[in-house]
Design a protein around this nucleic acid. Structure first.
Lengths: 156, 156
DNA sequence: TTCACTGCAAATGTTTTGCATGTGC
DNA sequence: GCACATGCAAAACATTTGCAGTGAA
Protein backbone atom coordinates (compact mmCIF):
# COMPACT_ATOMS: atom_id res chain seq x y z
CA UNK A 1 0.00 0.00 0.00
CA UNK A 2 1.59 3.26 -1.09
CA UNK A 3 0.94 6.63 0.45
CA UNK A 4 -0.47 7.98 -2.78
CA UNK A 5 -3.15 5.31 -2.84
CA UNK A 6 -4.20 6.15 0.67
CA UNK A 7 -4.41 9.83 -0.17
CA UNK A 8 -6.57 8.88 -3.14
CA UNK A 9 -8.85 6.86 -0.94
CA UNK A 10 -9.33 9.81 1.38
CA UNK A 11 -10.03 12.14 -1.51
CA UNK A 12 -12.50 9.72 -3.05
CA UNK A 13 -14.47 9.71 0.19
CA UNK A 14 -14.71 13.46 0.32
CA UNK A 15 -12.01 14.05 2.88
CA UNK A 16 -9.54 16.86 2.39
CA UNK A 17 -5.83 16.33 2.29
CA UNK A 18 -4.38 18.44 5.03
CA UNK A 19 -0.71 18.54 5.98
CA UNK A 20 -1.57 17.08 9.37
CA UNK A 21 -3.39 14.20 7.79
CA UNK A 22 -0.56 13.47 5.41
CA UNK A 23 1.91 13.51 8.24
CA UNK A 24 -0.22 11.07 10.20
CA UNK A 25 -0.22 8.71 7.24
CA UNK A 26 3.55 9.08 6.98
CA UNK A 27 3.90 8.29 10.65
CA UNK A 28 2.27 4.97 9.88
CA UNK A 29 4.07 4.29 6.61
CA UNK A 30 7.49 5.05 8.00
CA UNK A 31 7.14 3.42 11.36
CA UNK A 32 9.68 0.65 11.58
CA UNK A 33 6.67 -1.63 11.26
CA UNK A 34 7.08 -3.74 14.35
CA UNK A 35 4.71 -1.71 16.49
CA UNK A 36 1.10 -0.65 16.62
CA UNK A 37 1.25 2.94 17.76
CA UNK A 38 -0.77 4.83 20.34
CA UNK A 39 -2.41 8.15 19.60
CA UNK A 40 0.30 9.77 21.66
CA UNK A 41 3.07 8.06 19.69
CA UNK A 42 1.60 9.40 16.49
CA UNK A 43 1.20 12.82 18.01
CA UNK A 44 4.81 12.93 19.13
CA UNK A 45 5.90 12.03 15.66
CA UNK A 46 3.65 14.57 13.90
CA UNK A 47 4.53 17.37 16.29
CA UNK A 48 8.15 17.18 15.18
CA UNK A 49 7.09 18.55 11.84
CA UNK A 50 4.02 20.60 12.80
CA UNK A 51 4.59 21.73 16.38
CA UNK A 52 1.07 22.90 17.10
CA UNK A 53 -0.99 19.93 15.95
CA UNK A 54 -3.28 19.01 18.80
CA UNK A 55 -3.90 15.57 20.17
CA UNK A 56 -7.58 15.85 19.34
CA UNK A 57 -6.74 16.25 15.68
CA UNK A 58 -4.83 13.01 15.92
CA UNK A 59 -7.78 11.26 17.49
CA UNK A 60 -10.23 12.66 14.96
CA UNK A 61 -8.05 11.51 12.11
CA UNK A 62 -7.42 8.11 13.57
CA UNK A 63 -11.17 7.67 13.71
CA UNK A 64 -11.51 8.75 10.10
CA UNK A 65 -8.77 6.36 9.01
CA UNK A 66 -10.30 3.57 11.02
CA UNK A 67 -13.66 4.24 9.42
CA UNK A 68 -12.10 3.90 5.99
CA UNK A 69 -10.41 0.71 7.14
CA UNK A 70 -7.03 2.20 6.38
CA UNK A 71 -5.90 1.48 9.91
CA UNK A 72 -7.25 -0.68 12.67
CA UNK A 73 -7.39 -0.31 16.39
CA UNK A 74 -6.02 -2.77 18.91
CA UNK A 75 -7.28 -2.74 22.48
CA UNK A 76 -4.62 -3.77 24.92
CA UNK A 77 -5.21 -4.17 28.61
CA UNK A 78 -3.46 -0.96 29.58
CA UNK A 79 -6.55 0.91 28.46
CA UNK A 80 -4.70 2.66 25.68
CA UNK A 81 -5.62 1.98 22.05
CA UNK A 82 -2.94 1.21 19.50
CA UNK A 83 -3.34 1.71 15.78
CA UNK A 84 -1.69 0.06 12.83
CA UNK A 85 -1.87 0.20 9.07
CA UNK A 86 -4.06 -2.44 7.47
CA UNK A 87 -1.81 -4.22 5.02
CA UNK A 88 -3.83 -4.30 1.81
CA UNK A 89 -7.18 -4.31 3.55
CA UNK A 90 -6.07 -7.38 5.44
CA UNK A 91 -5.42 -7.62 9.13
CA UNK A 92 -2.69 -8.87 11.41
CA UNK A 93 -2.12 -10.58 14.70
CA UNK A 94 0.89 -10.06 16.91
CA UNK A 95 3.32 -11.36 19.44
CA UNK A 96 3.44 -8.49 21.92
CA UNK A 97 6.33 -8.29 24.35
CA UNK A 98 5.36 -7.51 27.94
CA UNK A 99 8.94 -6.41 28.53
CA UNK A 100 9.77 -3.93 25.80
CA UNK A 101 6.40 -3.50 24.12
CA UNK A 102 7.56 -4.59 20.68
CA UNK A 103 4.83 -6.18 18.59
CA UNK A 104 5.75 -8.56 15.84
CA UNK A 105 3.11 -9.56 13.31
CA UNK A 106 2.61 -13.27 12.84
CA UNK A 107 1.45 -15.01 9.73
CA UNK A 108 -1.43 -16.90 11.27
CA UNK A 109 -5.11 -16.20 11.70
CA UNK A 110 -7.19 -18.45 13.94
CA UNK A 111 -10.34 -17.73 11.98
CA UNK A 112 -9.52 -20.25 9.28
CA UNK A 113 -9.15 -23.05 11.78
CA UNK A 114 -12.34 -21.94 13.46
CA UNK A 115 -14.19 -22.17 10.18
CA UNK A 116 -12.97 -25.69 9.68
CA UNK A 117 -14.50 -26.65 12.99
CA UNK A 118 -17.63 -24.74 12.11
CA UNK A 119 -18.48 -23.45 15.55
CA UNK A 120 -19.77 -20.07 14.41
CA UNK A 121 -21.71 -21.63 11.55
CA UNK A 122 -23.35 -24.09 13.88
CA UNK A 123 -24.47 -21.28 16.15
CA UNK A 124 -25.59 -19.20 13.18
CA UNK A 125 -23.26 -16.47 14.32
CA UNK A 126 -22.25 -13.96 11.66
CA UNK A 127 -18.64 -12.96 12.16
CA UNK A 128 -17.77 -9.33 11.56
CA UNK A 129 -14.45 -8.88 13.27
CA UNK A 130 -12.13 -10.68 15.62
CA UNK A 131 -9.12 -10.08 17.78
CA UNK A 132 -6.19 -12.35 18.54
CA UNK A 133 -3.07 -11.20 20.30
CA UNK A 134 -0.37 -13.04 22.14
CA UNK A 135 1.45 -11.57 25.10
CA UNK A 136 4.73 -12.72 26.56
CA UNK A 137 8.44 -12.05 26.33
CA UNK A 138 10.51 -11.68 23.19
CA UNK A 139 13.86 -13.36 22.76
CA UNK A 140 15.78 -10.18 23.56
CA UNK A 141 13.95 -9.58 26.80
CA UNK A 142 14.39 -13.21 27.76
CA UNK A 143 18.13 -13.03 27.22
CA UNK A 144 18.40 -9.86 29.22
CA UNK A 145 16.32 -11.30 32.03
CA UNK A 146 18.86 -14.12 32.33
CA UNK A 147 21.54 -11.57 33.05
CA UNK A 148 19.54 -9.20 35.17
CA UNK A 149 16.89 -11.01 37.13
CA UNK A 150 13.30 -12.15 37.03
CA UNK A 151 10.92 -11.52 34.20
CA UNK A 152 7.91 -9.35 34.86
CA UNK A 153 9.26 -5.82 34.57
CA UNK A 154 10.47 -3.50 31.88
CA UNK A 155 13.64 -4.31 30.01
CA UNK A 156 13.74 -0.94 28.26
CA UNK B 1 -15.40 -23.80 41.33
CA UNK B 2 -17.62 -23.26 44.35
CA UNK B 3 -18.05 -20.02 46.21
CA UNK B 4 -16.66 -21.53 49.40
CA UNK B 5 -13.42 -22.40 47.66
CA UNK B 6 -13.00 -18.89 46.40
CA UNK B 7 -13.62 -17.48 49.85
CA UNK B 8 -10.96 -19.87 51.16
CA UNK B 9 -8.53 -18.67 48.54
CA UNK B 10 -9.07 -15.08 49.60
CA UNK B 11 -8.63 -15.93 53.27
CA UNK B 12 -5.48 -17.92 52.57
CA UNK B 13 -3.97 -14.87 50.93
CA UNK B 14 -4.66 -12.63 53.88
CA UNK B 15 -7.73 -10.93 52.48
CA UNK B 16 -10.73 -10.35 54.67
CA UNK B 17 -14.15 -11.61 53.81
CA UNK B 18 -16.41 -8.60 53.68
CA UNK B 19 -20.07 -8.70 52.71
CA UNK B 20 -19.28 -6.57 49.65
CA UNK B 21 -16.61 -8.98 48.53
CA UNK B 22 -18.88 -11.96 48.98
CA UNK B 23 -21.60 -10.26 47.01
CA UNK B 24 -19.18 -9.54 44.18
CA UNK B 25 -18.25 -13.20 44.04
CA UNK B 26 -21.93 -14.10 44.01
CA UNK B 27 -22.49 -11.71 41.16
CA UNK B 28 -20.01 -13.75 39.18
CA UNK B 29 -21.18 -17.16 40.32
CA UNK B 30 -24.81 -16.47 39.66
CA UNK B 31 -24.49 -14.58 36.42
CA UNK B 32 -26.28 -16.55 33.75
CA UNK B 33 -22.77 -17.31 32.53
CA UNK B 34 -23.05 -16.10 28.99
CA UNK B 35 -21.50 -12.71 29.65
CA UNK B 36 -18.30 -11.15 30.87
CA UNK B 37 -19.47 -8.29 33.06
CA UNK B 38 -18.31 -4.73 33.33
CA UNK B 39 -17.47 -3.08 36.63
CA UNK B 40 -20.71 -1.20 36.34
CA UNK B 41 -22.71 -4.39 35.75
CA UNK B 42 -21.25 -5.86 38.90
CA UNK B 43 -21.91 -2.67 40.78
CA UNK B 44 -25.56 -2.59 39.73
CA UNK B 45 -25.97 -6.11 40.91
CA UNK B 46 -24.23 -5.59 44.27
CA UNK B 47 -26.05 -2.34 44.96
CA UNK B 48 -29.36 -4.21 44.98
CA UNK B 49 -28.28 -5.88 48.19
CA UNK B 50 -25.96 -3.24 49.66
CA UNK B 51 -27.21 0.11 48.39
CA UNK B 52 -24.20 2.16 49.38
CA UNK B 53 -21.37 0.10 47.97
CA UNK B 54 -19.28 2.42 45.88
CA UNK B 55 -17.97 1.78 42.41
CA UNK B 56 -14.40 2.16 43.62
CA UNK B 57 -14.89 -0.75 46.00
CA UNK B 58 -15.94 -2.78 42.99
CA UNK B 59 -12.83 -1.77 41.09
CA UNK B 60 -10.55 -2.45 44.02
CA UNK B 61 -12.01 -5.88 44.48
CA UNK B 62 -11.93 -6.73 40.81
CA UNK B 63 -8.22 -5.96 40.89
CA UNK B 64 -7.75 -8.17 43.92
CA UNK B 65 -9.64 -11.01 42.29
CA UNK B 66 -7.72 -10.58 39.08
CA UNK B 67 -4.46 -10.66 41.00
CA UNK B 68 -5.47 -13.98 42.54
CA UNK B 69 -6.45 -15.21 39.08
CA UNK B 70 -9.98 -15.83 40.28
CA UNK B 71 -11.32 -13.68 37.46
CA UNK B 72 -9.79 -12.33 34.29
CA UNK B 73 -10.20 -9.10 32.41
CA UNK B 74 -11.21 -8.76 28.79
CA UNK B 75 -10.45 -5.59 26.86
CA UNK B 76 -13.09 -4.81 24.29
CA UNK B 77 -12.87 -1.96 21.88
CA UNK B 78 -15.43 0.17 23.66
CA UNK B 79 -12.78 1.06 26.20
CA UNK B 80 -14.62 -0.68 28.99
CA UNK B 81 -13.14 -3.74 30.70
CA UNK B 82 -15.21 -6.85 31.21
CA UNK B 83 -14.53 -9.46 33.84
CA UNK B 84 -15.35 -13.13 34.04
CA UNK B 85 -14.77 -16.01 36.39
CA UNK B 86 -11.81 -18.20 35.48
CA UNK B 87 -13.30 -21.67 35.16
CA UNK B 88 -10.87 -23.79 37.20
CA UNK B 89 -7.89 -21.64 36.38
CA UNK B 90 -8.64 -22.07 32.70
CA UNK B 91 -9.68 -19.40 30.29
CA UNK B 92 -12.34 -18.84 27.64
CA UNK B 93 -12.89 -17.23 24.31
CA UNK B 94 -16.20 -15.81 23.12
CA UNK B 95 -18.56 -15.00 20.33
CA UNK B 96 -19.60 -11.47 21.24
CA UNK B 97 -22.72 -10.03 19.67
CA UNK B 98 -22.40 -6.48 18.38
CA UNK B 99 -26.17 -6.21 18.51
CA UNK B 100 -27.22 -7.26 21.98
CA UNK B 101 -23.86 -7.66 23.69
CA UNK B 102 -24.32 -11.30 24.61
CA UNK B 103 -21.08 -13.24 24.81
CA UNK B 104 -21.08 -16.96 24.35
CA UNK B 105 -18.01 -18.96 25.31
CA UNK B 106 -16.66 -21.22 22.61
CA UNK B 107 -14.78 -24.43 23.07
CA UNK B 108 -11.78 -23.54 21.01
CA UNK B 109 -8.40 -22.00 21.75
CA UNK B 110 -6.16 -20.92 18.89
CA UNK B 111 -3.04 -21.42 20.95
CA UNK B 112 -2.97 -25.16 20.34
CA UNK B 113 -2.98 -24.70 16.60
CA UNK B 114 -0.34 -22.04 16.92
CA UNK B 115 1.88 -24.41 18.82
CA UNK B 116 1.55 -26.98 16.07
CA UNK B 117 2.85 -24.45 13.61
CA UNK B 118 5.55 -23.47 16.05
CA UNK B 119 5.70 -19.78 15.24
CA UNK B 120 6.32 -18.62 18.79
CA UNK B 121 8.89 -21.34 19.38
CA UNK B 122 10.76 -20.40 16.26
CA UNK B 123 10.94 -16.79 17.38
CA UNK B 124 11.91 -17.86 20.90
CA UNK B 125 8.90 -15.97 22.21
CA UNK B 126 7.69 -17.02 25.65
CA UNK B 127 3.91 -16.87 25.75
CA UNK B 128 2.32 -15.62 28.97
CA UNK B 129 -1.18 -14.71 27.94
CA UNK B 130 -3.32 -14.29 24.87
CA UNK B 131 -6.63 -12.89 23.77
CA UNK B 132 -9.04 -14.15 21.16
CA UNK B 133 -12.52 -12.78 20.72
CA UNK B 134 -14.93 -12.87 17.84
CA UNK B 135 -17.38 -10.08 17.14
CA UNK B 136 -20.47 -10.24 14.99
CA UNK B 137 -24.18 -10.90 15.21
CA UNK B 138 -25.89 -13.70 17.07
CA UNK B 139 -28.72 -15.69 15.53
CA UNK B 140 -31.38 -13.77 17.44
CA UNK B 141 -30.11 -10.41 16.29
CA UNK B 142 -29.84 -11.67 12.74
CA UNK B 143 -33.44 -12.85 12.77
CA UNK B 144 -34.64 -9.60 14.18
CA UNK B 145 -32.65 -7.63 11.65
CA UNK B 146 -34.51 -9.45 8.89
CA UNK B 147 -37.75 -8.08 10.25
CA UNK B 148 -36.58 -4.66 11.22
CA UNK B 149 -33.87 -3.43 8.91
CA UNK B 150 -30.15 -3.33 8.51
CA UNK B 151 -27.68 -4.78 10.92
CA UNK B 152 -25.36 -2.42 12.76
CA UNK B 153 -27.43 -1.15 15.66
CA UNK B 154 -28.76 -2.36 18.97
CA UNK B 155 -31.40 -5.05 19.09
CA UNK B 156 -32.51 -4.33 22.65
C1' DT C 1 -6.63 -4.22 68.83
C1' DT C 2 -4.93 -4.30 64.38
C1' DC C 3 -4.66 -4.10 59.69
C1' DA C 4 -7.19 -4.57 55.77
C1' DC C 5 -11.32 -2.57 53.79
C1' DT C 6 -14.73 0.91 52.79
C1' DG C 7 -16.95 5.34 51.22
C1' DC C 8 -16.35 9.71 49.80
C1' DA C 9 -14.21 13.02 47.06
C1' DA C 10 -10.84 14.32 44.21
C1' DA C 11 -7.37 13.06 40.77
C1' DT C 12 -5.83 10.67 36.65
C1' DG C 13 -5.54 9.32 31.89
C1' DT C 14 -7.60 8.54 27.55
C1' DT C 15 -10.75 9.94 24.29
C1' DT C 16 -14.61 13.03 22.70
C1' DT C 17 -17.14 17.30 21.86
C1' DG C 18 -18.53 22.40 21.18
C1' DC C 19 -17.28 26.27 19.14
C1' DA C 20 -14.98 29.81 16.63
C1' DT C 21 -11.49 30.07 13.23
C1' DG C 22 -8.76 28.44 9.43
C1' DT C 23 -7.95 26.10 4.90
C1' DG C 24 -8.13 22.67 0.91
C1' DC C 25 -10.34 22.44 -3.32
C1' DG D 1 -17.04 30.30 -1.03
C1' DC D 2 -18.27 26.29 1.17
C1' DA D 3 -17.62 22.30 3.59
C1' DC D 4 -14.62 20.02 5.96
C1' DA D 5 -10.56 20.54 9.42
C1' DT D 6 -8.25 22.50 12.98
C1' DG D 7 -6.90 24.31 17.78
C1' DC D 8 -8.32 25.38 22.06
C1' DA D 9 -10.74 24.47 26.11
C1' DA D 10 -13.89 21.92 28.42
C1' DA D 11 -16.45 17.65 28.90
C1' DA D 12 -17.05 12.81 29.19
C1' DC D 13 -15.77 8.46 30.50
C1' DA D 14 -13.55 4.57 32.94
C1' DT D 15 -10.48 3.81 36.48
C1' DT D 16 -7.33 4.99 40.45
C1' DT D 17 -5.81 7.20 44.69
C1' DG D 18 -5.65 9.82 49.35
C1' DC D 19 -7.66 9.94 53.47
C1' DA D 20 -10.22 9.33 57.54
C1' DG D 21 -13.32 6.28 59.46
C1' DT D 22 -15.15 1.24 59.87
C1' DG D 23 -15.16 -3.54 60.59
C1' DA D 24 -13.39 -8.56 60.20
C1' DA D 25 -10.44 -11.62 62.72
Amino acid sequence: MKEQQLVEQLRRNGYKITPQRQEILKAFMESSSRLPQSAEDIHNRVVEKYPNVSLDTIYRNLNVLEGLEIISRLSLKDGKSRYELNPGGSHQHHLICLGCGAAEAIDYCPLKALHEIGIAEEKKFEIREHSFEIFGYCSLCRERSDEIGKLPGKCS
